[in-house]
Amino acid sequence: MNIVVCVKQVPDTYEEKKLSDADKTLDRESVEGVMNELDEYAVEEALRLKEAHGGEVTILTMGPEKAVETIRKALSMGADSAVHVVDPALHGSDALATSYALAKALGTIEHDLVILGVESTDARMSVIPAMLAERTGAAQLSFARKVEVDGSTVKIERQTDTGYDVVEAQTPAIVSVVEKINEPRYPSFKGIMAAKKKPLTTLTLADAGIEASNVGLSGSGTSVAEFAARPPKQAGTIVKDEGDGGVKLAEFLASQKII
């Protein structure tokens, strides 16, 4: 079972994120880049499946030069090789454009299964898995909290609000995972030392057969019209309980049209 894990480098969750004034895209240079947390679970699940069933795990990342740090982390966790789609023309790609580029890059890697986190912590759109499935024609198995593989059959437990559904598909399939699925391992020292020696293929647009007109700011179907910093928090209303706290609270909630 050969598995591709799509991994994204995102700004550290705890850092202040900035949009650039010039083109209204995320300023990726000014913040520390880390592996999207949910993708760590995806890497872990791929490594566990590999350990159980054999095969190879390939990391696929689209992003600027800097994203190579995140690729190395995935390799140091134990992935076998990586493909990095990097081209200045990709800058500003929205989800549609990104899924197009990733689907093209996936075409260059032999695989049975694609695993990725259900969403990234920067954009939080949670649409890439579905778009990739649509573009590649692979079955979509989303929100997996458990994955089982038997030959070419992939069975997952799909997390729902009330419990879980059991969903099954044949490979090729695209599985998006939730954080309940496992506990990601730490990259080991040996893994870190080995990571630099593992194959890392860099793909430009031309290498992956990506049409420049379909990606980047101009090739994106959506655009950011305007943005503003989050307004500072307002001081809250303090309801003092003088025996009538409950009534005052209810009045407040009613005034906010909450009840």
Partner: peptide
């Protein structure tokens, strides 16, 4: 140990992670 932290500077031949006193 699972994170590989106990074995730095111990050779792999004895179950360590390799590396030096610097690591």
């Amino acid at each position: 140990a699972a994170a590989g932290l106990l074995g730095t500077a111990f050779p792999e031949s004895v179950g360590g992670q390799g590396g030096s006193t610097i690591d």
